[in-house]
């Protein structure tokens, strides 16, 4: 990951220090054609505000919903998205790839 990437991790720190409930989502595995590389981050707060990208827009909505649960429970989750998962998540990647996203609470 290049240091010049949009500074999502700094935002995660700043949001957390400002007292907001914060979760961090990270692409940990990809198969086939995936829109964002492994290591890509999305930071989410308990109001559903987010910054960054794990899929270029395809599954961010679902990740944000799950992240709010993670902020409440404190328990990390691994989410998987792909064309085969439409029944499970109601969202999919139009590119035909599969991604696995780790969501953890910050703080």
């Amino acid at each position: 990951m290049l240091g010049r990437d949009e500074d999502i991790l700094k935002a995660a720190e700043d949001w957390s220090k400002a007292g907001r409930g914060v979760a961090l989502a990270t692409v940990v595995e990809t198969w086939g054609s995936a829109p964002r590389p492994v290591g890509s981050n999305l930071v989410i707060d308990s109001d559903g505000n987010f910054l960054g990208s794990v899929s270029g827009g395809c599954v961010e909505g679902a990740v944000v919903t799950e992240a709010i649960d993670v902020i409440d429970s404190g328990k990390p989750k691994v989410l998987e998205f792909g064309v085969a998962d439409e029944t499970a998540w109601q969202v999919g990647l139009s590119c035909g790839g599969t991604i696995r996203v780790y969501v953890e609470k910050v703080g």
Partner: peptide
């Protein structure tokens, strides 16, 4: 991610380490 780990991570990144 614990806040202290995130802070240490950002400090290293800012220092180009």
């Amino acid at each position: 991610m614990k806040l202290d780990i995130l802070q240490a991570l950002n400090a290293e990144r800012a220092a180009r380490r």
